[in-house]
Design a protein around this nucleic acid. Structure first.
Lengths: 110, 110
DNA sequence: GTCTCTATGTAGATGTTCTTTATATCGTGT
DNA sequence: ACACGATATAAAGAACATCTACATAGAGAC
C-alpha cells in the first residue's frame, strides 16, 4: 500500500482532539481512548513522537506552561485544521472504496 | 495504537479478492487496484510476503499450477472466510468510532 | 533474437510503533 | 518527612511491516 494507514489515522486522532480543545499529550491519549470506547489507544512512546512530528510540520503548536508541573499544551494551527479536513475527507473516500470491496456479495458478515 | 491497521487492511483486501474468486498473486494486485479505483495498491514485494503469511496461518491455500508458466493459484479457506467476516465487522466498528470522533462538531469537511 | 508483459521470490533500507528506561512534579496517606 | 500512585514528557532500543531493488523466468509480439 502506498503508505501507512496507521500513521495517518493516528495523526488524525490527535488533530481531531486538539481541534476540539487544546490539551496536553497525556490528556490527548485519555481523550482518544474515552471517545473511541477504547478502540483506539496511544502508548506514550508512540504519542510524543507524533506530536513532535506534527509540530515540526506546523500542524500543531506546543507551549510549555509556566509554573508548577513541567508540561506542554498543544493547540491545532490553521494549517493543521485544513489538513484535518482534507485528510478526513480523503480517508472517508478510501474507507468507502475499501468497504465496497469487502462487502461485495457479502451477506454473511455480522 | 494496539496494532497495525495497514497490515490488517492489506490482509482483508487479499482475502476479499480471493473470496470472490481464486487468483494468482499478480492478479490479486491488479484486482485490488481496479476495484478500489487505484486508492489501494500492492507492491509485489509487499504482496507475496502477505500471501505467505496468510498461507502459514491457514487462511489461504496456494497451489502451483502444472505446466507452462510458473505460477501459484491462491484460494480462500473456510478459516480464511470466517476471519474475513470477523475482521471486516471489527474494522467496521472501529471505523465507525473513528469517524464519530473525526466528524464531531465538524461541518467544514468536504 | 530481443523486448515487453506476466509472474514469483528474496534481501536490504527505511520508517513506525511498542517497550523500556529516565526524569520530574503533584496530591494523598501515614 | 516519606512513600506511593497518578500526571507528564522524552529518548533509546527492539520488533515488525512496507518499499525499493534485484534476481529469475516463461509467453507472446515484432
Amino acid at each position: 500500500m502506498q503508505s501507512n494507514l496507521s500513521k495517518r489515522v493516528n495523526e488524525l486522532l490527535v488533530l481531531a482532539v486538539l481541534d476540539d480543545e487544546p490539551s496536553h499529550g497525556y490528556q490527548i491519549a485519555l481523550h482518544v481512548e474515552e471517545r473511541t470506547g477504547g478502540r483506539f489507544t496511544f502508548q506514550h512512546g508512540t504519542l510524543y513522537p507524533i506530536l513532535h512530528r506534527l509540530e515540526k510540520q506546523g500542524r500543531v503548536k506546543g507551549e510549555w506552561e509556566s509554573g508548577g508541573r513541567r508540561r506542554k499544551r498543544y493547540g491545532i494551527t490553521a494549517q493543521g485544521r485544513a489538513s484535518l479536513d482534507e485528510e478526513t475527507a480523503r480517508l472517508r473516500d478510501e474507507v468507502g472504496a475499501l468497504f465496497a470491496l469487502l462487502e461485495e456479495s457479502d451477506d454473511a458478515a455480522a
